[in-house]
Amino acid sequence: MNNTIKVAIVDDHKILTEGLKGLVDDSELATVVGVAHTAADCRHSIGFWKPDVLLLDVGLPDMSGIDLCKELTTRFPLTKVLALTTHNEYTVVRKMLDNGASGYLVKNAMAEEVLAGIEAVAAGKTFLCHEIDVLMKKPSSKNIWLSQRERELLKLICEGLTNAEIAAQIFLSPETIKSYRKNLLLKLGAKNTAVLVKMAIEQKLI
């Protein structure tokens, strides 16, 4: 097959890379064109391999996969990076994606998910394995995004103003303020205004 996806693997766990190589080569979907166990090996060889998809571990022995991801996607924009890692923390996933990764797999992902990920990123799509997809959709304190108006409202709530006072100050009806306040409680997962104020201060949301 000429349209077989060319895959390279960068991971310092040799047993894992062997298993992955076998999985990919047996799939008829893709073929492994190179394996590296360090960032230095990868840098040295990626120009020869010219992979369509690079399976990249976040924790490499000689440098962070997050930094390497940024470097490689800048140097080789046609190569899609699919992160493969034991890290399932929101911040690590976010950094990898911000640094150019097209997808994210955890190492205990099913074989089908690994192949689906390779196929998806090779086709220019973003792919998150099930566990990471669930994580990214979960409202966590680290990924709360508030609009300018919500921040303004939160600040006034923290100052102890009532709905009527806030309404008068930002020229909206008390009913509108009431629904904004309700949305903020939901968005931040706060049980009441006191918890909302505590979270706003602790997480520097205002």
Rank of each mutant, 00 (worst) to 15 (best):
residue 47 G to D: 14
residue 37 H to M: 07
residue 80 K to P: 05
residue 136 M to F: 09
residue 156 L to M: 15
residue 9 I to C: 03
residue 183 N to M: 08
residue 119 E to Q: 14
residue 155 K to H: 13
residue 91 T to D: 15
residue 29 L to S: 07
residue 13 H to E: 13
residue 114 V to R: 00
residue 15 I to Q: 08
residue 61 P to E: 09
residue 89 E to K: 12
residue 186 L to C: 10
residue 178 K to T: 01
residue 79 T to G: 06
residue 162 T to P: 06
residue 83 A to S: 12
residue 89 E to V: 03
residue 116 A to E: 15
residue 103 G to V: 01
residue 54 L to W: 01
residue 164 A to Q: 13
residue 103 G to N: 09
residue 160 G to S: 12
residue 198 K to W: 05
residue 163 N to T: 02
residue 8 A to S: 11
residue 34 G to I: 01
residue 5 I to A: 05
residue 5 I to S: 04
residue 57 D to M: 06
residue 171 F to G: 13
residue 165 E to V: 00
residue 188 L to G: 06
residue 195 V to N: 10
residue 90 Y to K: 15
residue 65 G to Q: 05
residue 51 P to C: 04
residue 113 E to S: 08
residue 67 D to L: 09
residue 29 L to W: 01
residue 97 L to V: 06
residue 110 M to P: 02
residue 102 S to M: 11
residue 160 G to L: 09
residue 61 P to N: 09
residue 101 A to V: 00
residue 204 K to C: 07
residue 17 T to F: 00
residue 165 E to D: 15
residue 9 I to Q: 03
residue 134 V to Q: 13
residue 88 N to G: 05
residue 141 S to D: 14
residue 189 G to M: 04
residue 132 I to Q: 11
residue 122 A to L: 02
residue 47 G to S: 12
residue 89 E to S: 12
residue 120 A to S: 11
residue 135 L to C: 05
residue 172 L to S: 08
residue 16 L to N: 01
residue 27 S to G: 07
residue 69 C to L: 02
residue 149 R to W: 07
residue 205 L to F: 06
residue 197 V to N: 10
residue 50 K to F: 06
residue 203 Q to F: 10
residue 108 N to G: 07
residue 189 G to Y: 04
residue 175 E to C: 08
residue 125 K to M: 08
residue 32 V to Y: 04
residue 112 E to Y: 03
residue 52 D to E: 14
residue 26 D to Q: 14
residue 102 S to N: 13
residue 27 S to K: 02
residue 6 K to P: 01
residue 6 K to S: 15
residue 56 L to S: 03
residue 175 E to F: 07
residue 12 D to A: 03
residue 4 T to H: 14
residue 181 R to M: 03
residue 4 T to W: 11
residue 161 L to N: 12
residue 197 V to G: 06
residue 19 G to P: 01
residue 189 G to P: 04
residue 154 L to S: 08
residue 41 D to N: 11
residue 132 I to V: 15
residue 10 V to H: 08
residue 91 T to V: 13
residue 173 S to Y: 09
residue 58 V to I: 15
residue 174 P to M: 04
residue 36 A to D: 11
residue 177 I to D: 00
residue 46 I to P: 01
residue 82 L to Q: 07
residue 42 C to F: 02
residue 200 A to P: 03
residue 68 L to S: 05
residue 128 L to D: 04
residue 108 N to F: 08
residue 57 D to H: 10
residue 196 L to I: 02
residue 192 N to G: 13
residue 137 K to F: 06
